[in-house]
Amino acid sequence: MNNESILSRIQEHFGSEIISSEVNFGILTIEISAAKSFEIIEWLNKDEILDCSYLTLLGGVHYPESLNREFAIVYHLHSWRKNYRLRLKVFVPSENPSVRSIVSIYNGANWMERETFDFYGIIFEGHPNLKRILNMDDMDYFPMRKEYALEDETREDKDDRFFGRSSN
């Protein structure tokens, strides 16, 4: 099972929902639309040829600079019978960061979605118990968002320019 045949198989069924695709260090990465993410993952789980029945990892990424694509939800799937990994990305805007929960497909997604909600404030619609998991319940912000600096803001020696990025 090589990456081209995986991609063409998915394109056959969800051609219009695939926004882009690339291969990163051997893992096929596909960006799919948020509206159809649940259907695609459910189909990947059931499909006999692709047989992507295992969810390895689910998490979020924050890209504050990309307009209307501020949050990414990244799914790592793994087919154990065919032994390949697949990475799916869903981008959602910061005004309405929500995507359909996949807990009904993979129970293991439950805490991973809660953690992503806890860190980024991404809403997983249909999640049975979407609340904070690692942080305090009464926390009123989402700490992994890029606007929350880790360091003390009064320090001048630790801004982003010193980390190889020139944001200001």
Binding site: L57, H62, V74, W111, G164
Partner: peptide, 20 residues
């Protein structure tokens, strides 16, 4: 992203996942 620190680093912690 080419910076000197990771842009994002996520750990897949097996405990966290199976303890559910």
């Amino acid at each position: 992203d080419g910076g000197r620190t990771p842009y994002r680093l996520q750990f897949r912690r097996p405990c966290f996942i199976y303890y559910q």
